[in-house]
C-alpha cells in the first residue's frame, strides 16, 4: 500500500458518497446514467469473485480489500435500487440511451482473447478490467445529450478521474519498488480509462470558459 493507491481508493469512496448524497438530498437522480451504474455493478461482481475464496483476515491488505470490495458492491447495488425504484420517476430514461450491450460484448470478446491464464476466474477478471475502462461512457453520453452539467455530477466524475490518475502514479511507484509480474492488462486499460476522463475534463473546462453547453466530440 502506498499513498497514491490509498488516495485513489479514498477518492473512489468520496465519489460514491457524492453520488448517493446528490440522490438523497435532491430526491432525484436526474442527470445520472443508470447504465453506467449497471456497468459498475457488472464490473464489481465479476472482479470481486475472490471474496468467496479469500480469507479476509489473511493479512491487513486482504482485510482492507475485503471491506472496500463489499462497500463498492453494496453501494453500487443501493445506487441502482434508488435509481430504479425509489426515484424512478426522476430518472432521465429518454436520454440515457447508450447501448451498453455493445460495450459488454466487446469487453467479453477482448477478455476471451487477452487474459493472463485460461481459467474462468481470470477471464472474468480481464472482462471486468476491460469493461471498467469504458463504464463511464454512458454517463458522459447522457451529459452530452442534456448539455447540463450539474456541479455535483461533475464533482462525481472529477473524483473518479482523480482516482484513476492516482492509480497510474501507484503503478509507477509499484513498478520501481516491487519486483513482481507487470500487470500490462490493468495498466493498459487503466490508462485508456484515465484518458477518457482527461478528455472529458478538457471539454468540460472549455465549455465552462466559453459559457456554452458541453459538447463532446
Amino acid at each position: 500500500m502506498n499513498i497514491f493507491r490509498l488516495g485513489g481508493d479514498m477518492l473512489h469512496v468520496v465519489s460514491i458518497f457524492l453520488l448517493l448524497l446528490k440522490i438523497q438530498t435532491s430526491h432525484s437522480c436526474a442527470g445520472l446514467s443508470l447504465k453506467t451504474q449497471i456497468l459498475y455493478m457488472v464490473v464489481f461482481s465479476t472482479r470481486y469473485l475472490d471474496l468467496f475464496f479469500t480469507k479476509p483476515w489473511h493479512s491487513a491488505l486482504t482485510f482492507y480489500n475485503t471491506i472496500m470490495k463489499i462497500l463498492f458492491l453494496s453501494s453500487s447495488a443501493y445506487t441502482i435500487y434508488l435509481m430504479q425504484k425509489r426515484y424512478k420517476h426522476t430518472y432521465d430514461k429518454v436520454h440515457d440511451t447508450f447501448r451498453i450491450q455493445y460495450l459488454i460484448a466487446a469487453a467479453a470478446v477482448l477478455a476471451l482473447i487477452f487474459h493472463l491464464r485460461l481459467t474462468v476466474f481470470e477471464i472474468l477478471w480481464a472482462f471486468s478490467v476491460f469493461l471498467e475502462s469504458v463504464a463511464i461512457l454512458p454517463q458522459l453520453f447522457l451529459l452530452q445529450e442534456t448539455g447540463e452539467v450539474e456541479n455535483i455530477t461533475s464533482h462525481y466524475i472529477f473524483c473518479l478521474g482523480g482516482y484513476r490518475t492516482l492509480y497510474i502514479f501507484n503503478w509507477v511507484w509499484r513498478y520501481f519498488t516491487e519486483h513482481r509480474r507487470n500487470q500490462w492488462l490493468a495498466w493498459g486499460c487503466g490508462t485508456v480509462q484515465t484518458l477518457i476522463y482527461a478528455d472529458f475534463f478538457y471539454y468540460y473546462i472549455l465549455s465552462r470558459k466559453q459559457g456554452k453547453k458541453l459538447r463532446l466530440p
Partner: peptide
C-alpha cells in the same frame, strides 16, 4: 511464479 500486482488492487 511471482504474483500479479493488480490482483491485490481494487
Amino acid at each position: 511464479p511471482p504474483e500479479d500486482t493488480a490482483k491485490d488492487e481494487l
